[in-house]
Structures are given as C-alpha cells and as structure tokens.
C-alpha cells in the first residue's frame, strides 16, 4: 500500500470524506475514523506528523464538542442542575459527531501527505484536469508553509515592537490581525507576480501541448483499492 498511486489515495480520501459528511451517528463516524486511521498507517504516513495538528486542534475540538452538547436542546436530559437540563442525549450525540467528523476529515487528508506534490500534479493531469488548474492547486499547497512562516515572522515583529499580546483586548487583537495580513497579502501578490513572469519566461502555456518526463501507471493493487473504495462507499451510503 506504500507505493499506491496518488489517484487511488485521492479516491479513498473522497470516499472517506463523503462518508464523514453524510454519517450523523457517532458509532458510524467512529468506524469511518478507525478505517481511515488504518489506511493512513498502511500507506506509511508518519503518525507523529499526523498527531501534531490534531494535538494543536484539541482545544478547538473540545470547545466545539461542549458547544454542541450544551446548545442542542432536543432529546432526553442526561445531566440536570436544579431541574434544568444541561446536557441531553441528542446534544452528546451531536457533539461527538462533530468532533469525530473533523478528526476523520483531517486524518483522511493526511493520507495525501504520503505522496509527493509532483505525483499529485501528475495524477490530476492524468485525470484530465487542465494542467493550469492542477499546477495552481499544487503551487497553492506548496506556498502554504511559506505563508505560514511569513505570518509567524510578522507576528514576532509585531510583538518585538512592544505589543503584549496577552495584555491587549480582543478588539485590539482583531485590529492587529488585520495589520498582520497586510505584509502577508502584499508578499503573496509580489511572489505571484514574480512567479508568473518566471513561468512565462520558461514557456508556460506557450505551446499547445505539454509533455511530462514521467507517467503514472495504475497497478493491480490500485485497481483493487479504487474499485473497493467506490463499492464500499456507495454500498454504505445506499444500504439502510
């Protein structure tokens, strides 16, 4: 499974995400989560890397869980304080569902990280997606870490000019974040312009046909995985 074609991985991710969005019951979502974790393990993804964003998102996930638990009023009360129902069974179900759904989508997206971005570009092109669009998607993904680093630099710079982030109000923080966006957007536009010039200077779209040095070829296991993923997804959605 480690050498799986990126198209097979993309198809699995689409199937998992679809199930995660359609399913509402925590037990069903837990099952989808377990399957996607197993696939992640089988494709050879670095589990430590997977845990990092999940760990960072944990407070947000818990907050979402609590908000859903408390503000869903339907269902039978499970926890009451002075006769007022705080948590209902439906609230608990909804909270768990939201949390599991987000974790599943993140984990399924991590399956894609086990292939290189160049392979994904080839995969999208071989799926007859126009090269310009596939290239744009890949460039977008490629620049995300750079944008993150730039945002961090501005964030540090703002603090180094005397802003105590812990001590300012939320409205001041929001104002500050709009300031932080200024160099990031400006940098992104500047980089896009430079890149466009550099690409055109190297004949991007100058000729009607573009060739590739490598071609992805589906193996037997890819056919099995793709057919299996689509069949499993459709039957799970159709079956009562």
């Amino acid at each position: 499974m480690r050498d799986l074609d990126p198209r097979s991985k993309l198809l699995m991710v689409i199937c998992i995400s679809t199930l995660a969005i359609v399913y509402q019951e925590p037990m069903q979502l837990l099952l989808v989560l377990l399957v996607s974790t197993l696939i992640l393990f089988l494709v050879g993804a670095d589990l430590k890397k997977v845990m990092q964003p999940l760990r960072k998102m944990l407070p947000l996930l818990l907050l979402l869980f609590l908000v859903q638990c408390i503000f869903t009023r339907q269902g039978a009360p499970l926890l009451t304080v002075y006769g007022i129902g705080i948590i209902t069974d439906m609230g608990l179900n909804t909270g768990l569902g939201v949390m599991l759904r987000i974790i599943t989508i993140i984990i399924s997206a991590m399956i894609l990280l086990s292939s290189s971005e160049r392979d994904f570009l080839l995969a999208l092109v071989q799926w007859k997606i126009p090269h310009e669009i596939a290239f744009m998607v890949m460039v977008g993904l490629h620049f995300l870490p750079i944008l993150r680093e730039e945002a961090l630099n501005v964030y540090y710079a703002v603090q180094m000019r005397g802003t105590e982030l812990q001590k300012i109000s939320t409205s001041q923080k929001l104002k500050l974040y709009t300031l932080i966006m200024l160099p990031i957007i400006s940098g992104a536009i500047h980089r896009a312009e430079q890149m466009a010039i550099s690409m055109e200077a190297r004949a991007f779209r100058a000729f009607p046909q573009r060739t590739y040095m490598r071609k992805l070829r589906l193996k037997k296991i890819d056919y099995c995985v793709q057919i299996g993923a689509v069949l499993a997804c459709v039957s799970l959605l159709v079956l009562p």
Partner: peptide, 17 residues
C-alpha cells in the same frame, strides 16, 4: 524588543503599517 531591536533579512516581513 524594547531593549534589543531586530531587522530581519527580509524587512518586508516586519512592515505592517
């Protein structure tokens, strides 16, 4: 920052006003 000032290699990344 009040005592040690820092100019990044790319100053564009610390200009935000």
């Amino acid at each position: 920052g009040r005592r040690v000032g820092y100019v990044f290699q790319n100053p564009s990344q610390q200009i935000f006003c």
